[in-house]
Every structure is written in structure tokens, then in C-alpha cells.
Simulated scan of single mutants.
Amino acid sequence: MAVVRVRQHVNPLAQKYLTPASPLEWEKIYAELNQPLHLDIGCAKGRFLLNMAEIEPNWNFLGLEIREPLVVEANKLRSQLNLTNLHYLFCNVNNSLPTLLSSIPPGTLQRVTIQFPDPWFKNRHAKRRVVQPELVEILANYLAVDGVVFLQSDMEFIAVEMRDRFTAHPAFKSVGAGKWLTENPLPVPTEREVTTQKKSEPVYRALFVKREVVNGE
């Protein structure tokens, strides 16, 4: 069987990724539509979400990934395991998130993870990074009150940038007074997290809770 090569870095600003994803028919995706939704942005091969879906059958899980071959393979494995609370979608989150979230029942989105995103090291490529102020605003609009956002990276400057952008938004309150979390609050680590820790390298983690904003404060 031929091995499909998948590019490690994909430019979300490229022309081929500028078309937003179509709205999802949620009732055709999940067996139990009324369960809380966990959104994983940049899910890669999707193994983290697959393990989460097995551990927490009372949650629905949605993984978004810009590299289509990874999504195809992840959905094949999901189907083989008959996980009816899990779905992967090929899309560019920078322009597709409002369309996807606008159709879900209010209060459904209760957990968001953004883990080890592509750092795009050069300053001139900073707009390609996934956590932009616009993304924070979208999540503030659709995440349920008391819902959480978990961020982690092995690149400190990226972790700081992500943390600062959520801290700057009045809808999000940092857990831990702005300090890095020493432990992952979720029951499943990502593959990148395991690899990083095996090398005894640091992982920078931050957790935010969505609070109800009254009169912009």
C-alpha cells in the first residue's frame, strides 16, 4: 500500500484554504446530540480525541485539522471503532469556526483545546498562527459560561502569546493566576506532549474559564 506523504506545515492563508467549511448537520454526526461538545483545534492525527472519546462517552468530540489526509485517516479509524461521539473535519479554523459553531445549540460547546500548534517562528508569518484575537473573540461568543479553554505548547513564546490573547479578553479568566500549570488537567496527553516529556523538556500549559460578561466587564 502506498504511503501518503503529509506536509508538516500548511499555510492557512494560501488560496486553497480560503473557502470556509460548510455548516455541519450535527444530528447526522453524533448519536447523542445533546451531550456537551469538546472542540480540539488542530487535532493532527486525532489520537488524543479518539482516546478522549473512548474515556468520556457522555461527551461529543470534534477535531478540526487543515491537513485533509490526516482527517480522512482519522475518520476511517473512528468508523472502525464505531465511536458515535467523535468526528473529524478538514477545514481552516481561521475562516470556518463561526460557520461551524453558529449552528450548534447554545451552551453545547463546553471545552476547547489548542495543543502544540504550529509556531510559525518568523515574525512575518505571525498571522499564520492559529490563536489570533479574532479566534479568541469567536470562542468567547460560543463557549458556554463556565466552559474551559486549555492551551499548551513546548514553545514558550507561542504559549505566552496564546495565554496573553486569552487574558486580554474580558470573557476569559485564567486558572492559576496566570502561572503555567504543572500538570495536564485532562486524562489524556497528546503524542507531542509525551515525546516532549520523555526528552525532559518543558511544556507550557494554561487553562481559562469562560465567565459571564456584564456591560463589557
Rank of each mutant, 00 (worst) to 15 (best):
F208L: 05
V71R: 02
N85H: 06
E25I: 14
V130W: 09
L139E: 10
V160N: 14
V93P: 13
R47M: 14
Y17A: 00
K210A: 10
R163Y: 08
L13N: 07
W59L: 06
E54Q: 15
E25H: 14
N92M: 10
V194S: 03
R129E: 03
E137Q: 12
L13D: 08
G107D: 03
S174E: 05
R124C: 15
F172T: 05
N11D: 08
E27T: 15
V3Q: 00
F61T: 11
E56Q: 15
S200A: 07
Y88N: 06
T196Y: 01
T19F: 01
E193W: 01
N123L: 14
L77M: 08
E212P: 01
F150L: 00
V175T: 00
N11R: 04
F121W: 15
L37M: 13
D164T: 12
Y30E: 10
S79N: 13
C43M: 07
N215F: 12
D154Q: 01
P57I: 10
V188Q: 04
A168V: 11
V209S: 09
L143T: 09
G63E: 08
C91M: 05
R7G: 02
V71Y: 02
Q8H: 09
F208I: 00
G42N: 13
T84E: 14
I41C: 11
Q197T: 03
N75A: 03
R163E: 05
H125Y: 07
N75F: 04
H87A: 15
E25W: 07
N11A: 00
V213W: 06
A126D: 12
Q15S: 01
G63I: 08
L33H: 12
D146G: 02
Q35H: 13
L139V: 14
P57L: 03
E68I: 00
E156D: 13
M1S: 09
H125N: 15
L89Q: 12
I66E: 06
V131Q: 07
H38P: 02
V4G: 03
L37R: 03
L77V: 12
R78K: 15
N184H: 03
F208V: 04
H169V: 05
E201K: 15
A177V: 04
Q15M: 02
F121Y: 14
S79R: 11
V4P: 00
V188I: 09
G42I: 14
A140R: 09
C43G: 08
D40M: 10
E134W: 08
S153Y: 09
L181T: 03
T99V: 14
V213P: 10
S79Y: 00
N75H: 04
L186T: 02
V93K: 11
K173V: 15
P57G: 09
Q197F: 01
A171Q: 07
R165W: 07
G42C: 13
I114T: 07
V175I: 02
R128P: 02
L100Q: 13
P133N: 08
V72H: 01
